[in-house]
Amino acid sequence: MTLVFDAHVRLGVGRDASLTAGELLAAMDRLGIDRALISPQERCLAVDHRDGNAFVAEAARRSGDRLLPYAVASPWRGRGALDELARAADDGAVALALDPAVQGFDLLDGQADPLVEAAAARGWPIYVRTGTPSFALPLQLAELAVRHPQASFVMGKSGATDFWIDARPALERAPNLYADTAYAPWDVVLAGLAAPPIGWGRLVFSTDMPNSAPAIERARHDAWPLGDEARAAILGGTLQRLLP
């Protein structure tokens, strides 16, 4: 039985799209998704980190182990951000989510490094949303990944849209970087990212609910002509392996 594990969902009330835990679990049931990593809404990425961490931790506790929380904290908070990560870890967090466009930092300004180190020390993968110029780009994330070879990074959105062209060079630059399949058509993007020598072992499935059409995101992986082993890895096996 293939494990289907969604690498990124945002829970809560967003600016233009919202999602409750109940709606998420219903969508997962409908689409055959077993588990999902959940990040809090944009407000909690930007400013209200403690609220966000508590919110996703509670949703995870109520989910019967289907939802797993990301921790969020602002690189601008310095020591306070590390304390927040520790609190989130005690509350069940298993990964770190960063969004330079929403949180307002430069991936290479050094401010995120303590958070990355703290996540790596816990064995957490780090989801970083990419695609927004000028400070949320795949090749910048690849440099951050090179600085931190002990950590695993998920390249959120893989540069969608016009920085898809950078996603493959980013994967080539940093072996500890994994591509997210959200928004990326298999025929014009994903097949190129998965081509040797990178290989399908460096891709992870996400729906990016509620910003996406989740049924389309999920159906893509049935339409893509892949072998069973590759499909299972992309849909969940690889992400499962990255988690502590």
Partner: peptide, 20 residues
């Protein structure tokens, strides 16, 4: 943009707008 005349991603986008 795709290599195959079938353009699978175009079908995906049509499905998405039809489900909107």
């Amino acid at each position: 943009l795709g290599a195959a005349v079938s353009q699978p991603f175009a079908a995906e986008r049509i499905a998405e707008v039809e489900q909107l």
